[in-house]
């Protein structure tokens, strides 16, 4: 399962390409496996794309993993109380 590295900047402008990539992954029937170690900035737009992707993966019965989140990413996920919504499955 290829690991998809998340970009350093996950601000609002990054939400659209991220969504596009995740839809493509799911459409290929692949599990989503993300590497969050390089994320320096993150905002609501990308977090909700990730949460929607996780829900979609659950619905399709494929895996979802967000590994090695950077401090910045981890902080924002915790701050927004999205730990469950971005938790791994499968």
């Amino acid at each position: 399962m290829p690991v998809h590295p998340l970009p350093a900047s996950l601000d609002t402008s990054a939400a659209s390409p991220l969504r596009h990539d995740l839809i493509a992954t799911l459409d290929r029937g692949e599990a989503i496996h993300l590497d969050g170690s390089g994320v320096a900035r993150v905002g609501q737009a990308c977090l909700q794309v990730l949460a929607a992707a996780q829900a979609c993966a659950v619905a399709r019965g494929v895996g979802f993993r967000l590994d090695d989140p950077s401090d910045a990413l981890r902080h924002m996920i915790a701050l927004a109380r999205l730990e469950s919504a971005l938790a791994p499955n499968g």
């Binding site: 590994d67 469950s84 919504a85």
Partner: peptide
């Protein structure tokens, strides 16, 4: 070092 597992929201 992975976010904690959980069922869907």
């Amino acid at each position: 070092d992975t976010l904690p597992p959980s069922s869907a929201p």
